[in-house]
Structure formats: structure tokens, C-alpha cells
Design a protein around this nucleic acid. Sequence first.
DNA 1: CTGAAAGCGCTTACAG
DNA 2: CTGAAAGCGCTTACAG
Lengths: 335, 335
Amino acid sequence: MPTLQDVARHAGVSTATVSKVLSNTPYFTEETRLKVMQAVAALNYRPNLAGRALSSGKTEIIAVVFPYVYDALFTDPFVLYMLQGIEAECHAEGYNMLLSTPRLTAAGPDDHYLRLVQSGYVEGMLAFDNVPLASVLGPVHQRHIPCVAIGYHETQYYVRSDDYAGGFEMLQHIVGLGHRRIGLITVPEKTNFSMDYRLAGLRASAEASGLDFARLPQVSGNYSIEGGAAAAKRLLDAYPELTALVCLNDRMAMGAVQQCQALHRRVPEDMAVMGYDNIPQAASMLPPLTTIDQQAPELGRTAARMLFSLLKSHTPEPVILPTQLIVRGSTIPVR
Amino acid sequence: MPTLQDVARHAGVSTATVSKVLSNTPYFTEETRLKVMQAVAALNYRPNLAGRALSSGKTEIIAVVFPYVYDALFTDPFVLYMLQGIEAECHAEGYNMLLSTPRLTAAGPDDHYLRLVQSGYVEGMLAFDNVPLASVLGPVHQRHIPCVAIGYHETQYYVRSDDYAGGFEMLQHIVGLGHRRIGLITVPEKTNFSMDYRLAGLRASAEASGLDFARLPQVSGNYSIEGGAAAAKRLLDAYPELTALVCLNDRMAMGAVQQCQALHRRVPEDMAVMGYDNIPQAASMLPPLTTIDQQAPELGRTAARMLFSLLKSHTPEPVILPTQLIVRGSTIPVR
DNA sequence: CTGAAAGCGCTTACAG
DNA sequence: CTGAAAGCGCTTACAG
């Protein structure tokens, strides 16, 4: 592969000149600029990023960190959806995404991750940091690597979706439709901060409506479609009088809808079902799913934008993205 | 951050010694080895990968390339599912994945991608190269970067799923259940090699069964759930006598099932519906979807294994992964 | 406006 | 068994 040296030789200038012309330093005559660009084109030169990284620290790589816990990472469409927003920004800025999937235990992230963080390879990090068990940010802060977190662990730069408000809105919608016999499909507490805040929003909403939250039947569904279906079955068996199921994510809601149909309860006529996330599939279910949009692509996009702002030595403000109620066919007024 | 120099000083040896000890070169006394390791631990040293990359070309990074065409990349669970297999191997080998998503047009991949390929940053590549429009491999071969392709473009090292056999098996199953009035939900030809081969398999199977393939009603569904639903509607409106719908992927099959239910055709009693891919959601639909398993995680895992084999200077054989018919509740014998 | 030279942090023949 | 030294391909004060 041709190097800077080759270009310099070909253009009859010094390597310093080539380097500066290529990084758009002003103060060059049009003539030398032209000579350089022609040599670059003639040799089809592209910079060796390892060389650049070593001398300047610029690698044009950011790490996107998704801790590898539960099955979420590779089965939740939400992940891919958020990645879409990150990709869009990276592409616009000419950066590459390095996908890091540390194994996370109470002792912290694994060694492979530590190695990456301290490798000098990544200019910045975007960390999905939402597991109460442990944060992935410790080693990042220690090395002073610019980082934006998506989640609730304490840190300077972060983006969050307003899960509390989303949870609040959710129950408000259901109650507004006249439902009072409401079953909740949740997840084990303290596995994910967002889920805990959604639940807190539900609780506040229930109390604001004069419902006794502690009395609402609640079963944990473990995130998946199957988990949602199983939870729905347990709820409906034990509480046949229910008229609405409120699920903390769309996948569990999908399972709940299927389970209702299998038990010959029509959705929405006999049972209102509501999800959370607004994953792409939610709109194309039958019936289409009422849900809370947490703007997954925008979440990723905003975090990426903040990171690039940081890399340009600005100090962006944390962002809490609003949620939005999306009413579709799976919820109608109670009969 | 501490450097090799720091470690050498701390241990009272040369940098060459530290470097060699860390790369497990033999011929060192237990004593110096110990001194080095203690210094490494004391300083919490981790190698700077840019330095290593520059001097040895080893970066511990492979690029995973998914061309950005259609909506597939960020909406198809299949992508994430395959990535899971790749991640597993990378993690085992201590490598990192750089996710590259070149915009692909007939003129080839975009400039950002070319820059990456020639950056000296990636030790090897795993390319999802399956779009007839253009290949992403040109610049990779030109720079002699070790590369394994997942797809049908011509290249030395590749992994494919046996789409032709899968297509064949598919129709064979449906015909074996006694169905003769079969509608096909496909995609536009020449947008994706795998799809074309599945279709070729269907054709061969039809002919082997004495069916006139050209006469089977066929509508293009454009990959998505909505596309599948719309295609199913057009088929059932025009050909109410159909008893089976064969869909070239699971997402379209999901849409087809929903459409059937919306039109009050019960699945599987009134209409058998079959998909292809065996994405995670297929098993948890209602009814669960009969499909062809193309072993997505194994596809990614095999490709990654081949690449690591290449990086160790072996010459792996191309692999064609067998497909497997997964019979679930969405297909039963014709009445 | 342009260039000589040092340096980023590693690895690797080559000597001994 | 260990080390001195060159070199990987860039960038960046510093001079002029």
C-alpha cells in the first residue's frame, strides 16, 4: 500500500506538507495543494489509521458497548433499532463503530473489555449502561475516555428515555379507557434500571387514579415473547376477571396477545393489551399494538451526537428523551 | 497510561524482553518472566494496540460488513441472529468486531468503506456479500486482506446456506401434505442471491412433483411483515381457492398469517402457511411457524472460524451449510 | 508558505 | 537467554 512518503515523493514535497494538506491546514498555495491531491489520486493513497492513531490519538473509531447479560442483546429488536440511530450519526461523521459486548458480572466487565478500553484504539465510547448489577464505566472514567452512557448509572454525560413518564402514561391510558381490573406483566426487579422506572411510573399513575397498586395482579415475564405468554396465562388463570394487561415491553405484550387468543379471549374486545418500546413489529401485529414509543433510533442518535460533540471539546448537556403514547388497535374502552 | 517502556524500567529489563515475554516467546528464565509479570501487574499495563498495529500489523480487529441496502440491516432479526454466532467466535479468540455498513450502489461500496479497508486497521473481514447489484469484495481482494464472505459472489473463501435445497424441501413439505393450490410470496428477482436460489429450489421441487411452476400464483412481498400481509391479500383476493402460502422468509410469513386471520381464514385449518429462516420469533407465533432453519448463528460462527483459520495461515475449505425443515403448527394436510 | 526532525508505542531480525 | 537499534506510517511543534 502506498504511504505518505510515496505521495510526498510523487508530488515532490515533504511528508509534512502532504499531511497538512490532507488535514485541510490553510496557508498552502493552490499549486502545492494541487500537486499533492494529484499524487494522492494517482497512487490511490489512503491513510494508515494505525500510524495516525499512534501519533495523534485520532482513530475514527468509537466503541459501542452492549453488556452481554440475559438474552437481550441478540434477540431484542430494540437493540438493532437503537443501533440504527448510532450508525446514522457515525456514518455522517465518518466514524466506524466497534461493537463491544463485555460479559458483565457483579465483579464488573471482563478482561477483554478492559483491554479494549485501554488499547488506545477507541476515541470515544457509547455505553449501554443500564444493569444495576454493575456499570461498564469504571475503567472508562479511569482512563478519561470521552463517553456517553445510555442508561441510569451515575455519570456526567448520558441520554435516557423518560421511563418514569412512559410508565405513568401507560397506566393513565388504560385507566382512561375505563379499565380497573388490570394485570401487570413485568420483569424481576433490579435487573434493568429502565424497567424499574417504568414500574415506578405505573405505581405513581395507579395512585393518582385511586387504584391500590399493590393489589394489581403482577407476574414477571422475563422480557421474551414466551415469557409474556406464560405470564399472561398465569394471570388469566388466577384472575379471570381481568380486562387489561399492561406489559413492560412489546415482546412480552406480543406473547400476551397470543396467549389471550389461544384462551379465546379476543383482543381488544375482551382484553386490552398494551406494550412498551414501539419496536418495528408492534405496528404490524394483529391487532396492532398500543405501546409507548421510546424513540429507540433517536436515543442512539442523540447519544452519538453528544459523543461527537464531546470529541470536539464541547460539553453537551445530558438529555432525557420524552416518550410518546402510540394508540393502536389493541386497546379499547372497557365494555 | 503506562507503556512498554515503563514496564521495562520497572522490571529492570529491556523493552524487547517485555515484548517477548508478553507474547509468550519461550527461552526466558522463570525469574525474568516473573519480574516482567510483576511489573505489568504493578502498573496495570495494557498494550497500546495502535503501536502494535503499526509494527506488526496485528490489530485484533475484524470488520463485519453488512451492506446497507433495503431496510434489511436494521429490521431483520436474522441479522442480529447471525451476528450472535460471529460474536461468540470473536469473543473466544479475543478479537473485536468493527461493524461496517457500506452504502452499496451499482458503482460499488462507498468511500468511507474503502477508507476502512485500506486503513491497516482490520486484520480480516467477514462480509455479508449477497446483493447481485455489486460486491463489497473488490477492494478487499485488491489489498489482499484475509476475508470470508457469507453469500454467493465469487470468491475463494465463503460460507453459504444451501438455499436451493431449502427451497426444494419447502415445497416438498407442502406438496407432501397434499396441497396443490399453492400461492408463493416472493421478492423481486435479483435483489438477493439467496432468495433467487430458494426460488430455483421451489421451481425444481414443483417440477419434480409434476406441478407447473409457472402457473403457481406468485406475488412479491418485499421482505417485510407488511409486505407479506399485502401480498397474501392480493393472492387470496385473486385466488380464493388456495390452500397453502409459501413465503421466502419468516417475516413475510408472519404477515401472511395475520392477513389470513384478518380475512377469517384459519391457519392452519383453512390455509397452510410456511416461512423460511427460523428467526427466533417463528417458534413463538400463534400458530408456531413451519419454516426452514438456515442456522443463522452457525452461519456466522462458521464464517468467523474460517476467518480465524485464515489468519493462522491455514486454507479452510468453503462450507455450504445444510438447511433443515422445521415442522410446526402452521402447516397441516389439506382437507 | 514549506520542511527537517522528533516522537507516538510497539515488534523483530540480528548479535552476542 | 537477553538487549540495542531500526522501523512501522503518521503528526506536530519548531524554524526559517
